[in-house]
Design a protein around this nucleic acid. Structure first.
Length: 817
RNA sequence: GCCGGGAUGGCGGAACGGCAGACGCAAUGGACUUAAAAUCCAUUGGAGGGAAACUUCCGUGAGGGUUCAAGUCCCUCUCCCGGCACCA
């Protein structure tokens, strides 16, 4: 009998797959199409670790399973190769990003092939190649033409270390997502994408997606829709004029409790309304706020600060004159950048009112909350209730009052129903080198001009210095050959935009490019994209739950509205594999594997020692694929033992094959097929593997005969997990063609049912005996059987059976007293 | 603070409301071997009783509840992980 020589076997089959191109997809054949997509990696210099393997092995098992089920599967791979790390590397080591990226990609491709995964390498794409980013620029143009891309001077999140602006989504706890440096504010002209125009669609379309609830909820919260009202307060300005001021509130029912107004420090009205004598004080405060970083300003424990403007506003419902304040707890970019403060019913307003001694008027009754000795609230009451101190609305339920007060406001032209979203427009420019140049020029005569498709791609020029200037300009700004250009309209002198796009740009549409990755005339073939997309199953880490997935959905919706595609969601099903962590000596915690944490486990030695198939099996066996896990080397032995045992068993049985399998083993095989099929479908790969182990444990102890046909079924159903050994065993049993051209076997429904079953007999809920009996035996007959049992008699003697519960074929419970 | 998710042997983890701990690791004892590795066999949640076949009680983070029956459903709490964070 041959021994299991995994090194030879794996080498052999990876070579054969490379030659036969078995897993290359015929895009023209749209029958039974299935698009399975991995989130494409950023090709870092440190290569793949066992954490990367987990997702790729999972998607490969799923892909191979789908192929065996008769689907024409597209499973491509590519590189998200623009972005900061390559550029930082260039700065540090002086290697041009084009070169380091290419080297890293070549290395990644080799490492991915080591997994033995079924990628179609003819569809490979690289976001930093001009052939690709030409079309990223093209999409930008489409957005520009629709008015979805615009320029705005605004304070952006500035990372002093990366020397670039960051999207709000890239700021974690006030720090740079990438390097952890405290983010500062910097006023710069920025390109923005109007993702807020799509807030409602991005929110409501979540409903139709087969995504983990967790991710949907995260996106929901990120978009942050709030129903409320805009209320118009008239301001009496410094000059005595009345100026209408809009505020947004979700609690119009508390309008009678509004005791002051707060404007964000950036509110445009401030200049207009401040009386002369207050100017110094107010501007000092605003300057102070501007100097604070976002993290300081938004720190929750921070005491409220603010300044009185010296002006007043009129509450439209009761004509009360209330003071207008400026405070940094009101944010300019949300709602109207101004609020009506209701300290009795909003904790933030309450704290502010307490600090500055502003009046607190209760307008929702509540008896439950404790009050101090003077009968004052100790904290704001934020729930609903019955209105008090609210004129004609007094006595009304607050939910009803919301509508009634809005109606009153509408009737009196003092407000309206309104919706606010937390989602903000997407800051789309980066002051860095290694990204897609934004296809815009500034002409002396024509001003801002967007390029046309024929002008694309705007190529990224070679530079000698990658260092960002730090002034907020990209390194491109130092290259005259790049900047100086001609206006496409008047042919006059023009300057190029020097900002580049963020890393998220290329990954926002790459799934559209794969099916026709070589197409030169268009970003994608409309017809082919419409048949192959949306992606049927998207597999990747949960860390992209908000950013990447939201941006990709946004791009898809824009292209849909432009008529380029006929679907408006890119990913029908999403599966997030859990991360693989390991204890880091540096941080003293179990963390995601990374070079900087020093906790990376390379698969190389494991592959050498046990083989790819064993590593694949172990990656899946460690636990449920969606749950995070901690890497532990010791368990891998079990998976290797199993494969050796499986190899030996198949070899031994093959030497002595019979025409038909014997009853018991046939039954076990059918149960195995049933279990494995169901568990793969549910992505429960760990339990699918234990089903194989259980089967083998009984099979090796059975001397029953087994037929070739049945042994082949087992090899087929194990092949998605361990493709190399399966191909070898398949070939050894006399086949010339790849096992992946086979069909997934069916199980015989009649064979997975047992005729004789064991029914636990419970007394008061505790199992006291088990009876073996024919399936579907009548209750009365089972009961007679039960009474014969000595074990049961022990518990029923001198007792009364007051209740009998029989759950057919499951359990029999006697309640005795 | 708010929103998610979780807590089961020494460890990773199984369990449509129906025999808790499948499968694997580690450990212990044994077989084979000059010896070891590999392999195979047995034991392995805790406590008690029995010479033994066996048997009783307790056990799924804590405390309540629903149910004939709860790891699973409901309420309260503790701890851990993830996301958001002055969003009016």
């Amino acid at each position: 009998m041959e021994t299991y020589d995994f090194i030879e076997i794996e080498k052999k089959w990876q070579e054969i797959w490379g030659k036969t191109k078995l897993h290359y997809t015929d895009i023209q054949n749209i029958k039974n199409k299935y698009y399975c997509l991995d989130m494409f990696p950023y090709p870092s210099g440190s290569g793949l670790h066992v954490g990367h393997w987990r997702g790729y092995v999972l998607s490969d098992v799923w892909t191979r399973y789908k192929k065996l089920c008769g689907y024409n599967v597209l499973h491509p791979m590519g590189w998200d190769s623009f972005g900061l790390p390559a550029e930082n590397d260039a700065i540090k080591k002086g290697i041009h990003p084009t070169i380091s990226v290419k080297r890293n990609i070549d290395n990644f491709r080799i490492q991915l092939k080591q997994i033995g995964a079924m990628y179609d390498w003819t569809k490979e794409i690289t976001t930093s190649s001009p052939e690709y980013y030409k079309w990223t620029q093209w999409i930008f143009i489409q957005m520009y033409k629709k008015g979805l891309a615009y320029r705005k001077k605004m304070p952006i999140n500035w990372c002093p270390k990366c020397k670039t602006g960051l999207a709000n989504e890239e700021v974690i706890n006030g720090c740079c997502e990438r390097c952890g440096t405290k983010v500062e504010k910097k006023e710069l002209m920025q390109w923005m994408l109007k993702i807020t125009d799509y807030a409602e669609k991005l929110l409501s379309d979540l409903e139709k997606l087969d995504w983990p609830d967790k991710v949907k909820i995260m996106q929901q919260n990120w978009i942050g829709k709030s129903l409320g009202a805009i209320v118009i307060f008239d301001i009496i300005s410094a000059d005595g004029d009345y100026i209408p001021l809009k505020v947004f509130t979700t609690r119009p029912d508390t309008l009678f409790g509004a005791t002051y107004i707060v404007l964000a420090p950036e509110h445009p009205y401030i200049n207009k309304i401040i009386p002369q004598d207050k100017k110094t004080q107010v501007y000092n405060y605003i300057t102070q706020v501007q100097q604070e970083s976002e993290i300081e300003r938004t720190h929750l424990l921070k005491e409220k600060t603010g300044v009185f403007t010296g002006c007043y506003a009129i509450n439209p419902v009761n004509n009360k004159k209330i003071p207008i304040w400026i405070a940094d707890y009101v944010l300019i970019h949300y709602g109207e950048g101004a609020i009506m403060a209701v300290p009795a019913h909003d904790q933030r307003d309450f704290e502010f009112a307490k600090k500055f001694n502003l009046p607190i008027i209760e307008v929702i009754s509540n008896e439950k909350d404790k009050k101090d000795i003077n009968g004052n609230l100790m904290k704001a009451y934020e729930n609903s209730g019955i209105l008090i101190n609210s004129n004609i609305f007094t006595g009304m339920d607050s939910e009803k009052a919301k509508n009634e007060i809005i109606n009153w406001l509408v009737k009196n032209k003092k407000g309206e129903k309104s919706i606010a979203y937390k989602l903000r427009d997407w800051i789309f420019s980066r002051q860095r080198y290694w990204g897609e140049p934004i296809p815009i020029v500034y002409c002396e005569k024509c001003g801002e001009v967007c390029l046309e498709e024929k002008d694309l791609p705007v190529l990224l020029p070679d530079v000698e210095k990658y260092q960002p200037s730090g002034t907020g300009e990209s390194p491109l700004a130092t290259i005259p050959e790049f900047i100086n250009t001609k206006c496409p309209i008047c042919n006059g002198k023009a300057r190029r935009e020097t900002n580049t796009m963020p890393q998220w740009a290329g990954s926002s549409w790459y799934f559209l490019r794969y099916p026709t990755s070589d197409l030169n005339s268009h970003p994608f073939d409309k017809e082919i994209v419409n048949t192959w997309l949306p992606v049927d199953c998207y597999i990747g880490g949960v860390e992209h739950a908000i950013l990447h997935l939201l941006y990709a959905r946004f791009f898809t919706k824009v292209l849909y509205d432009c008529g380029y595609i006929n679907f408006n969601e890119p990913f029908l099903k999403l599966f997030n594999q859990g991360m693989v962590g390991k204890y880091s000596e540096k941080t003293g915690k179990v963390e995601k594997m990374s070079k900087s944490k020093g906790n990376v486990v390379s698969p190389d030695e494991l592959v050498q020692k046990y083989g790819t198939d064993t590593v694949r099996l172990y990656e899946l066996f460690m636990g449920p694929p969606e749950i995070d896990c901690e890497w532990n080397d010791t368990g891998i032995e079990g998976c290797h033992r199993f494969l050796k045992k499986f190899w030996d068993w198949v070899c031994k049985k093959s030497a002595n094959m019979k025409e038909n399998s014997d009853t018991n083993i046939l039954k076990s095989i059918n149960i195995l097929i049933y279990q494995v099929t169901e568990r793969i479908k549910e992505f429960k790969m760990n339990t699918a593997i234990s089903a194989f182990m259980e089967f083998l444990n009984t099979a090796v102890h059975s001397d029953e005969n087994i037929s070739l046909k049945d042994i082949e079924k087992i090899i087929i159903i194990i092949s998605p997990f361990v493709p190399h050994i399966s191909e070898e065993l398949w070939e050894m049993s006399g086949h010339k063609e790849s096992i992946f051209k086979e069909k997934w076997p069916e199980y015989d429904k009649n064979l997975i049912i047992f005729d004789i079953i064991e029914i636990p007999i419970q007394i008061n809920g505790k199992v006291r005996d088990i009876v073996k009996i024919k399936k579907d035996t009548e209750e009365t007959i089972i009961f007679e059987e039960i009474l014969k049992s000595d074990k049961i008699k022990k518990f029923t003697e001198n007792k009364k059976i007051i209740k009998k519960i029989y759950i057919p074929n499951k359990v029999f419970n006697l309640v005795v007293q």
